[in-house]
C-alpha cells in the first residue's frame, strides 16, 4: 500500500477469513479513498458480506489487518467499530421491528450520547436537554431519507423500501465517516433505485464515504467511482466501472467458464 495514508479512509491488508476448511475471504487487500463511492461486487457466495462482517467486527479476520484512518482496528468489537466511525446496513434488513422509526434512529444516536444511568434514572436536566436535542437530530435524519411522516410508526409496519431508508437513517445517526451498505437496492423497483442513487449522492455530500455491496449493475455502474470484484473470496479485479465491466475474469466469474 503505497497510497498516501491521508487519502485513504479504510485500508484492508491481506484480510483472510477461514471457517474450518472453508476460505470465505482469501487474502483481500484494498483501499477506499476519503469521499468516494466504492463498490464491492461478485457472484452469490463470493464472500462480500463476510468481508463486511470482518470490517465491522462481527467476525475477527483469521489473518490480515483492517486499518481505519491509519489506525489498526482488526478484531475490534462491533460497538467499538461503530464508535470509531463505521456504520452499516444489513443485507436482510435488521431494524428494531417493534420500536418506532424515531426510536430506531435515536438508538443510532446512542453512541454519540453522554447521559449515564443516573441521568436517565432521575431525568436530570442535562439528560432532558440531550433527549430533546437527539429527538430533533433524529427527526432531521428521517426527513433526510424522506420518511419523517412515519416517525411514530413501528419499523415493522413500514413498506419494504422505507425500511431500507430507515436503516440508512439509523446508520447515519451514528455519525459515521464510512457507511457500509449491504445490497441497498435489493428488491427495489427501477424508480426506487433511481431515488436510492440520489440518496447515496446526498449522503456523500454530508462528508460520508460510502462503500456498497450491490448486485444491480445499473446502480453500481451509475454511482460508484471504483469497483472491486470478489469471487470465491478472492479479489479478481479492481478499477473504475468501465474497466471492470470489460475485464474477462469478471465476465467469466459472472457467466461461467464457457462464456
Amino acid at each position: 500500500m503505497t497510497d498516501n495514508l491521508d487519502d485513504n479512509i479504510l485500508v484492508l491488508n491481506n484480510v483472510t477469513k477461514r471457517f474450518g476448511g472453508l476460505v470465505a475471504v482469501d487474502d483481500v487487500s484494498l483501499s477506499i479513498k476519503r469521499g468516494e463511492i466504492f463498490a464491492l461486487i461478485g457472484p452469490n457466495g463470493a464472500g462480500k458480506t463476510t468481508l463486511f462482517n470482518n470490517v465491522t467486527g462481527l467476525f475477527k479476520p483469521t489473518s490480515g489487518h483492517v486499518i481505519l484512518n491509519g489506525k489498526d482496528i482488526t478484531g475490534s468489537k462491533p460497538h467499538e467499530v461503530a464508535r470509531l466511525g463505521i456504520a452499516r446496513t444489513f443485507q436482510n434488513i435488521r431494524l428494531f421491528d417493534y420500536m418506532t422509526c424515531l426510536d430506531n434512529v435515536r438508538v443510532g444516536r446512542h453512541v454519540r450520547m453522554h447521559s449515564k444511568l443516573w441521568d436517565g434514572l432521575f431525568k436530570l436536566p442535562a439528560e432532558r436537554r440531550e433527549e430533546a436535542r437527539v429527538t430533533e437530530e433524529a427527526m432531521e435524519l428521517l426527513r433526510f431519507v424522506g420518511i419523517a411522516r412515519q416517525a411514530h410508526q413501528y419499523a415493522r409496519n413500514l413498506p419494504y423500501g422505507q425500511q431500507r431508508r430507515l436503516e440508512i437513517a439509523r446508520a447515519l445517526a451514528t455519525e459515521p465517516k464510512l457507511l457500509l451498505l449491504d445490497e441497498p437496492a435489493a428488491g427495489f423497483t427501477p424508480q426506487e433505485k433511481v431515488e436510492l442513487m440520489a440518496l447515496v449522492r446526498k449522503i456523500l455530500d454530508r462528508g460520508v464515504t460510502v462503500w456498497l455491496i450491490e448486485h444491480d449493475m445499473k446502480v453500481v455502474m451509475g454511482i460508484s467511482e471504483r469497483i472491486v470484484v470478489l469471487d470465491h473470496g478472492e479479489k479478481i479485479a479492481e478499477g473504475p466501472p468501465e474497466e471492470v465491466r470489460t475485464d474477462p475474469r469478471v465476465i467469466e466469474a459472472y457467466l461461467g467458464k464457457s462464456a
Binding site: A82, H110, D119
Partner: peptide, 20 residues
Amino acid sequence: SRLGRAWMAIREDEVAAAAM
C-alpha cells in the same frame, strides 16, 4: 432514556444493536 432504548434494541436484535 438512552439506556431504556438500548435495552429494547438488544431485545429486538442484538447484532444490529451492537452495530449501532
